[in-house]
Nucleic acid binder design. Structure first.
Lengths: 390, 390
DNA sequence: AGTATTTAGTCCACAACGTAGACTAAATCA
DNA sequence: TGATTTAGTCTACGTTGTGGACTAAATACT
């Protein structure tokens, strides 16, 4: 339940409110902020003063735009990108990935290391990632950036509250707590790859506030973004679209069920129709009009449409966004999938390709940490509650 | 986004915090409230004073329990049930229903009128309900209760933000705004029957904070309660379990899709196996061991299990609670449904019967209004912001 | 140019609210 | 009866936001 409101939390909330508006509206004058937030000019001035001092924002001497002409021009306040940063991390089947992102959500550093993680122990994999991460932190520090936190994307169901990876079958992991193994000098949030990719799509893609992001990797996951925030379910396992039942009489799935979507539209099922088992080969065949490839896509599209029909009825997402391997295959999947979705009684949700690209998960993770900083600047300010008390 | 925090909203929040704890913990002393909320005794005293004055709480001269012996005994503060009330309303295919509930969530009045609403226009149906409602308000007023608001349950998808019933096929309704037609002197919240029944189960049933309530009526709906609140989806249409695809090659559904759960486990499908098309007859046959009846239940149970498998993967509910027609049929449905759910990889959710009974929706609706009053006492206080200002 | 007007931002006295600790009240224990 | 313990109130005070006066810096009008 909600906590008691004291004067300091009142301050913290208003600080977050102001910083949030600065983040949303780009450079804004104090006067505009007062108007938007409903606070008085005085209060906004004081709050902005604190934010300036903490290095979260700067003033832009030129007032940026000049759409109103009369009166004293205001000084614009905008996010300051050269102090606070966040780390995005990703462990996937065949690569490790890091990025450093500043407060303005600009990527400052981006590094991917191709490794086959299937045959390594979780400890080894995480150790590798740790090296990458520490190197990134050093380089960020050299640029004056201090890292406030990190987010790690993992392919498989995660309980983000406890940071527990329940099982990442494609990595051969059982219950693992990667944050403990990483042992970094700042908090590390662990979440499912599809969830963080969905957030990536939120901030670096189309930018709509409500959608279901479908992540076609080796497994099929989905992240439901709802009012700009993730819906995670009771234990954090929501969005396992890959195991929605498409046909109860269908083939067995490694999850123990039968006829799961993954068996029809997972990477393995799709790339079966590729000459070399690679995506590029499949796309070549599709463009060449290969019958078998087209049939595989049509089957996958139909299955996807069926599963999404169930998902739409249960979750009521605003839009469906296809990401991962589904993005390049969109031209061939769209038709059959849309055909199945066409029958929904109420408003049929839009259907779109992801725009954030393959980096979505790392970017989304780092973006989530930035989001947390912006949502609670008081908790991340240099000497917020510092002081010598009894 | 969050609103600015001023002194008065700080007060409002702390008032809500105190009242919420009084509601959760029953009679509590001010000292205990101070401990629970983290506010000082002084502040709690002042807040309780306001709540006393507004008629939301009373003092219980006897301190109720006596588990600690030393020291001055405190005066317990508890919700006051004889001032503020809420109205629960329901329109269903063959009845109208009203209840008056006080702040302590005690039902003060309960009235159901059997009418076949299938052949009446929405205007007529709502006019009937209005009469019932006004009568209930009068009787409540006679008992000293003033109605703070109402909630109306309707069978079909509703956009609660706009109060718009999108289509209630079983009533023959198109887009209707019942709150406008009701024209009552307090706000009326309109929501889907399954959603409000889920809330009914939350407050008058098992009392767990996270579950998926499955409402088996003519249609099959579901309400997802998550941390004590409803998940509604982008437009409020989430939880349409009845149209989750059980078999893409199955029979056509009136929703335009194929093989929806409703075709296998809806009331029509189940009561087909009853001699007179009534539930009691079906149950008699089932207890008698009738083969056809048992087969119908087994098919329905299997289909329910399949649909719930998809729902569990997408929504990750804590528990599944079967309500409506499914509650009495639970003994025969449980086996086949659980069999399908058994295969889920992660934690299999519990499976239980609803305890709130057939009144769940009206009770849940009224309870929701009470919830709103408790969550914002300042907004419902007699002369909260009254005063003569410029 | 010079003055009026407009808008931005700051200053200051004040009000609202919660806090800390002294103080009073009412019970039990010795 | 008096010490102890716990509940609740009272008072001086600190923090935070407010409202309006005031200063600053631009354009518009004459």
């Amino acid at each position: 339940m909600a906590q008691a409101v004291r004067h300091d939390s009142m301050r913290a909330r208003n600080l977050a409110l102001v910083l949030g508006e600065v983040s949303r509206n780009g450079p804004v004058t104090r006067a505009a902020l007062a108007e938007i937030t409903g606070l008085t000019k005085t209060t906004v001035s004081k709050l902005v003063g604190d934010l300036l001092e903490s290095g979260m924002v700067t003033e832009s001497p030129p007032p940026a735009d000049a759409d109103r002409s009369r009166g004293r021009p205001g000084v614009a306040v905008r996010l300051r990108g050269d102090r606070v940063a966040a780390l995005g991390l990703e462990i996937n089947v065949d690569y490790l990935s890091v990025c450093v992102m500043d407060l303005t959500r600009t990527v400052r550093l981006r590094r991917t290391q191709a490794v086959d993680n299937r045959d390594s122990s979780s400890t080894d994999v995480v150790r590798n990632l740790r090296d990458l991460a520490l190197q990134a932190v050093d380089e960020a520090a050299a640029a004056g950036l201090s890292v406030a936190g990190a987010a790690l994307a993992v392919p498989g169901p995660v309980d983000p509250a406890q940071g527990l990876v329940h099982s990442a079958p494609n990595l051969g992991w059982g219950d693992v707590r990667p944050a403990d193994l990483l042992d970094l000098p700042f908090p590390v949030l662990v979440d499912n790859e599809a969830n963080l990719a969905a957030l990536g799509e939120l901030w670096f893609g189309s930018g709509m506030p409500d959608f279901l992001y479908v992540s076609g990797e080796i497994g099929i996951g989905a992240g439901l973004v709802f009012g700009g925030a993730l819906f995670r379910g009771t234990r954090g396992f929501a969005g396992e679209l890959g195991h929605v039942v498409v046909d109860p009489g269908g083939p067995d799935c490694r999850c123990g069920g039968r006829g799961c979507l993954e068996r029809y539209a997972g990477q393995d099922a799709l790339l079966d129709a590729a000459p070399d088992g690679l995506l590029d080969g499949l796309i070549r065949r599709l463009t060449a009009g290969d019958t078998r490839a087209r049939a595989a896509c049509e089957q996958a599209g139909r299955a996807l449409g069926t599963a999404l029909t169930s998902a739409v009825h249960l979750l009521d997402p605003g839009t469906i966004i296809l990401g991962g391997i589904f993005a390049p295959l969109f031209p061939w999947l769209r038709g059959p999938a849309a055909e199945a979705l066409r029958h929904i009684r109420h408003v049929v949700p839009n259907f779109a390709v992801a725009e954030a690209g393959p980096d979505a998960a790392v970017l989304g993770g780092a973006g989530q940490v930035i989001q947390q900083v912006i949502a609670d600047p008081a908790g991340h300010m240099p000497r917020a509650t510092a002081g010598l008390q009894t």
